[in-house]
């Protein structure tokens, strides 16, 4: 039964890929576009180190590793879950109705049907970037650290995915929420590119620990580099990414359930 469900989603994804493939020129342009945007984000990190020798107490190779982990995690989440941003349009126009009358879960159905294959470019860029950063940082890769290096982007993607979904549910209560969700999703991507020592006070407490962004790049990078956390958390924190991510996913799933119940279909 479970296998059958997966096969259905695979078909929905394939249908979306076939649909997109019809617009080949646009697809190529957008594929390049996503890579271009990802490079602009990384460029910002590089430029900063032209002016400063360290940022938040960390030298280039450490920050670059954090930024690479963040870029890769965000790209994965953007590919798989990013299209949930469109939920605002679905709620506004009542298009969600057509999704809700099918015998499939609404969230996986939306994700499968709206997947944006053009974002594959960004994922490849992110993976390459992690490789370069790991090399630049001259990591001492024990088997445990190898595992951490592989798991971290996935855990980060799950966390970003949870943020994507949870912030998208805001649209069910607040249809005109505009760019609100972007503050948490794209904001989170920018935020996780730098060490958490950079941020101050309440802002750090809310974003780094409250929303869990510290576990995307910062703590795993510390564990990979074998550094102590200047903020005082124990070394094991670097390994908590998957736990935090699963917790966030649970919260997002509950938020989604409540939101669907709250859905007030508009239009005739």
């Amino acid at each position: 039964m479970a296998d059958g469900t997966l096969a259905i989603y695979r078909r929905l994804v394939a249908a979306q890929v076939r649909s997109q493939a019809q617009y080949r020129a646009s697809f190529l342009v957008e594929l390049c576009g996503t890579v271009l945007f990802a490079s602009v984000d990384v460029l910002a990190v590089l430029v900063v180190f032209r002016v400063a020798r360290s940022v938040g107490g960390f030298e280039f190779r450490a920050v670059f590793l954090m930024a690479a982990l963040s870029t890769c995690a965000f790209a994965l989440a953007d590919l798989t879950v990013g299209s949930i941003e469109r939920i605002r349009a679905y709620v506004r126009t009542g298009l969600l109705d057509a999704v809700l009358v099918r015998p499939l879960g609404a969230l996986p159905q939306l994700l499968a049907a709206d997947v944006a294959p053009k974002r594959v470019g960004r994922v490849l860029f992110g993976i390459g970037l992690v490789g370069v950063a790991a090399h630049t940082a001259r990591l001492d890769l024990t088997p445990a650290r190898w595992l951490l290096l592989l798991v971290t982007p996935v855990a980060g993607a799950v966390l970003f995915g949870a943020i994507f979904v949870a912030s998208a549910t805001v649209a069910f209560w607040w249809i005109d929420s505009g760019e609100f969700a972007a503050a948490l999703t794209y904001g989170g991507r920018d935020l996780t590119s730098y060490p958490m020592t950079v941020y101050g006070g309440l802002f750090r407490r809310v974003f780094a620990y409250g929303l869990g962004f510290a576990f995307v790049g910062y703590y795993p990078a510390l564990a990979l580099l074998g550094r102590r956390d200047p903020l005082g958390l124990p070394a094991v924190t670097g390994w908590l990414g998957p736990v935090v991510a699963l917790g966030a996913a649970g919260v997002a799933a509950s938020a989604w359930k409540v939101a669907i119940r709250h859905y007030r279909s508009t239009g005739s």
């Binding site: 020798r53 005109d176 505009g178 802002f203």
Partner: peptide, 29 residues
């Protein structure tokens, strides 16, 4: 309403960039 949402987003990015650039200044000669 869209304005309120935009202000929230601008503010989050404002804090973020501000902290980063201040850290850059802190790490510069």
């Amino acid at each position: 309403q869209a304005m309120v949402a935009a202000m929230f987003t601008n503010s989050v990015f404002g804090f973020l960039r501000c902290f980063v650039l201040l850290a850059v200044a802190g790490g510069a000669a």
